[in-house]
Design a binder for these strands. Sequence first.
DNA 1: CTTAATGTTGTCTG
DNA 2: CCAGACAACATTAA
Length: 258
Amino acid sequence: MPELVEVELSRQLAGALAGRRVRSVEVPDPYASPLGPRALAQALIGTEFGLPRRRGKLLLLDTDGPTLALHFGMSGRLRLDGRTALGPLRYAPSGLEVRWLRFSLGLEDGGRLELFDPRRLARVTLDPDEESLGPDAATLTLAQLRSALGRGHRSALKACLLDQRRVAGIGNLICDEVLWRSGLAPSRPAGSLGETELHRLHRQLRKTIALLLDQGGSHTGTLTPLRRRGSRCPKDGSPLARSVVGNRTTYWCPAHQR
DNA sequence: CTTAATGTTGTCTG
DNA sequence: CCAGACAACATTAA
């Protein structure tokens, strides 16, 4: 679930952390962090949270000490004081089982921040390298998009959009949805877009992200439910193609995506 | 049992 | 040097 949209919803949930202090640190699955449980505890206990930030798919929880960074991998989700920001997990519809709790913080006021992750690809770090991420997709300017794609001259458009160093936050579902709405083929060389196409892509990117946020998830688009063999394009009725682009399964309409 | 999965990273190859 | 292919990571569920 964790593309920009889910992480943003988690950031909003984490807003309630501001001004609260860490009392305890638990790491039931040490695999979740390259830092040991001890280092995390030492760095975090007693610190006070500020307002949470997000860059791409990274949730940044600033404290008056280090910045706690959460990356949700494929199946991570956040719970704060018993509340979550997202609907059921695709790979764990039953949701928040104790065996999937990988990291948690007890707060001085009795509250609790918990990271659940069935698939164990989520990561907890401190003071991450934020600058290696490209500009955030939700607020990307046309100029930023142009330069992100320009440098990727001959690599596939979709591969560029998924590259977090170029643009941060776009995942597989958002990418396919945006390209479908933009009428652009995922395998188009990124550098081949004309100014009109670039404009269209930029507009659809911003619009789609806002829509998906509003609807509560990356999976709420038009194309997502059609990600199975035999589906047809809702725009023109053509059979959707299924291929691999940028290492990810890609659904698209060869009829109107050019 | 097989396959695919909302992600990232490193390695190999042409 | 570049882009693409592929495996690995670890697990769930259809």
